[in-house]
């Protein structure tokens, strides 16, 4: 009997979602196959790579990243510089300084930075919160307002604050609403349902379903993303067809493999190379598991992952 190859193309597809506006706007999703399965059907929108800077500016960056931003004095300067690095599709401004358990910067100060950064670059912008649900609700509301018309991503609404974030970012200012769960497929689905029931357009939702640095319980990340893509494509589950965006830098630059100095761990070799390796390995695995976009910190990681995507699609 002749062998007939069966296509793994599905009748359902991932939603297409536009980030940003104008010439620099990017589109996530749209595929009707598993990640990188271009042999089953073409993938029109390749996964995208974002670069992360923080409200802490240059000081907050690891030493090995600082040299890339030489001469920058403000966060907006860094944003401008970041936009020129090879492979950067979008910019993520991580407002970690807002955390009440950390620096607890006032929302107004953070929003001032948001505005300066937005004025400095025309790339699509992601605003990443400080992880405190009350503060984030406040930050996202204000950020949505000052970024009106920029089609920015608010990363992200959680179970505890989805009503506030959905109402301000999604309903009032028509920004893209991130929906964050942590390796919990049922919650990932539930959040999407709740946001759409609130009136947020399903096509304006992007999911952050969680990640971990490679080697840190990463199996859960793979199975979570796998099952979400399977439900979205095989079962045609419209409540899980949102594209996935994964912040990688926040996971990988805090672990010992990236933090330990060469003096402390001579057998581990060059610290910068380790940091890049952890970031690249994690990002590559996230993309292979189903992320439509990843957020990285080191310019070399960004260039490497962008090259990988280009080679595969």
């Amino acid at each position: 009997m002749p062998f007939t190859a069966k296509s793994g193309k599905f009748s359902a597809s991932i939603n297409t979602l536009t980030m940003g506006t104008g010439e620099k706007a990017i589109v996530l999703g749209g595929e009707n196959v598993f990640p990188f399965y271009t042999f089953d059907a073409p993938i029109a929108n390749a996964p995208k790579v974002g670069i992360e800077i923080t409200d802490g500016g240059l000081e907050a960056e690891p030493d090995c990243v600082k040299k890339y931003y030489e001469g920058c004095t403000t966060v907006a300067d860094m944003a401008k510089k970041a936009a020129t690095f090879e492979g950067v599709d979008f910019l993520s401004l991580h407002l970690e300084g807002g955390d009440p358990n950390g620096e607890n910067k006032p929302t107004e100060d953070l929003i001032k930075i948001v505005k300066e950064v937005a004025d400095a670059v025309d790339l699509p912008i992601v605003i990443s919160g400080c992880k405190n649900v009350e503060k984030d609700a406040e930050i996202f509301a204000k950020a949505s307002e000052v970024l009106d018309g920029r089609n920015a991503v608010m990363l992200a609404a959680k179970e505890e604050n989805y009503k506030n974030v959905g109402a301000s970012a999604g309903l009032a200012y028509k920004q893209v609403v991130g929906a964050e769960s942590a390796d919990d497929i049922n919650l990932a689905k539930q959040l999407n349902v709740l946001l759409t029931q609130l009136g947020v357009d399903a096509k304006s939702i992007v999911m952050n379903v969680g990640t971990a640095a490679a080697g840190y319980g990463y199996e859960y990340v793979v199975s979570t993303m796998d099952r979400i893509k399977a439900a979205a494509l095989q079962q045609g589950d419209a409540t899980l067809q949102m594209p996935i965006i994964t912040p990688v830098a926040t996971e990988t630059w805090g672990i010992k493999e990236s933090v330990a100095t060469e003096e402390d761990m001579p057998e581990w070799g060059d610290q910068e190379a380790r940091g890049i390796d952890m970031e690249v390995e994690t990002a590559a695995a996230d993309l292979a598991s189903g992320s439509n976009a990843v957020i990285l910190k080191h310019p070399e990681s960004v260039a490497t992952i962008a090259k990988m995507i280009k080679a595969l699609i």
């Binding site: 539930q190 349902v193 409540t239």
Partner: peptide, 12 residues
């Protein structure tokens, strides 16, 4: 296993 559970599964 035909659909993925979510707390609002009856509403969708």
């Amino acid at each position: 296993g035909n659909t993925l559970y979510a707390d609002s599964y009856l509403e969708i």
